[in-house]
C-alpha cells in the first residue's frame, strides 16, 4: 500500500505539490509513481529561472524500467531544483515526499493549487491504475 499524505495536493500525472506558504510550491512524484517506475537512475531537472506552463513536460525521471516525463503542475518560474538528485537519484525512491523532491515553482497564480487533486481524489487515480 503506498502512502498519500493528506497535506499535499496531486496531479493526475502522479506529481505531488506542497504549498510552502510564500507563493512557492514544491513538486515531487508520488510514492505510487516511484513504485511503478522502479529504481531511479537519472533525474533530469529543469533549470532555475525556467518559465513553465502547467502541463508542460519539464523533467524526466529515468528508472531501470523506463523514462517518464514529469509535468509542471502549475504555471510559474522554477526557483529551485534538487541538485542532490544528480548524485543520488535513488532518493526519489527512498523518500519521495521528503528529500526526493524535484523542483520548486514560484506560481503566477497561487489559486491554481486549489484546482489540484486532494489525497482522496488522487487515491481514486491510483486505484484506476
Amino acid at each position: 500500500m503506498s502512502t498519500i499524505p493528506a497535506d499535499l495536493k496531486y496531479a493526475s500525472t502522479h506529481e505531488w505539490v506542497r504549498n510552502e506558504g510564500d507563493g512557492t510550491f514544491t513538486v515531487g512524484i508520488s510514492e505510487h509513481a516511484q513504485d511503478l517506475l522502479g529504481d531511479m537512475v537519472f533525474v533530469e531537472l529543469p533549470d532555475v529561472g525556467d518559465k513553465v506552463d502547467a502541463g508542460d513536460d519539464v523533467a524526466v525521471a529515468e528508472s531501470v524500467k523506463a523514462a517518464s516525463d514529469i509535468y509542471a503542475p502549475m504555471t510559474g518560474e522554477v526557483v529551485a531544483i534538487n541538485e542532490d538528485l544528480e548524485d543520488a537519484p535513488e532518493t526519489v525512491n527512498n523518500d519521495p515526499y521528503g528529500d526526493g523532491w524535484l523542483f520548486r515553482i514560484k506560481a503566477d497564480d497561487a489559486s491554481e493549487f486549489e484546482n489540484l487533486l486532494d489525497a482522496e481524489g488522487y487515491q481514486a487515480v491510483v486505484d484506476e491504475d
Binding site: G38, D39, V41, V64, E90, N93
Partner: peptide, 8 residues
C-alpha cells in the same frame, strides 16, 4: 519476483 525492494 521482479524485485524484493531494489533491483539495483
Amino acid at each position: 519476483p521482479l524485485n524484493y525492494g531494489s533491483q539495483i
